[in-house]
Amino acid sequence: MKKAEYVTEILTYTERRLLQILRKYYLGGFALLPFLWLVNSIWFFNEAFRKPVYTEQQQIRLYVIRSMVGTLIWLAIITTWVVIFQLNRASWGATADYMSFIIPKGMP
């Protein structure tokens, strides 16, 4: 094998590996693990949008976009929950206490 071919081989290999990992993380995210999607969105951002075009990029970009959407949905859900919980913690009484890990001192 010539040196140039060898280099291309390694490069495509790396890109395939990347795609594999990305895919795994993406699928893993459906197991209620939004942080995997967050990792995807940040870590593969350059790979998907800022590198010169290569074969696997199309697919990488697809997964990254989907991960981003997933992250945003989760972010919206969590933010809403936190707001609802903080606003209603006192009035929910016992239920809220049982949900809490740390209960603030000196507050209802």
């Binding site: 006192a90 009484g93 016992a94 206490d97 049982y98 809490s100 890990f101 209960i103 001192k105 000196g106 507050m107 209802p108």
Partner: peptide
Amino acid sequence: AMDAAKDSQTCIRRSNLVV
């Protein structure tokens, strides 16, 4: 600064929580 708030039931319940 006081730790308990609201009423006895609340603060006794919170004291007994072992989370």
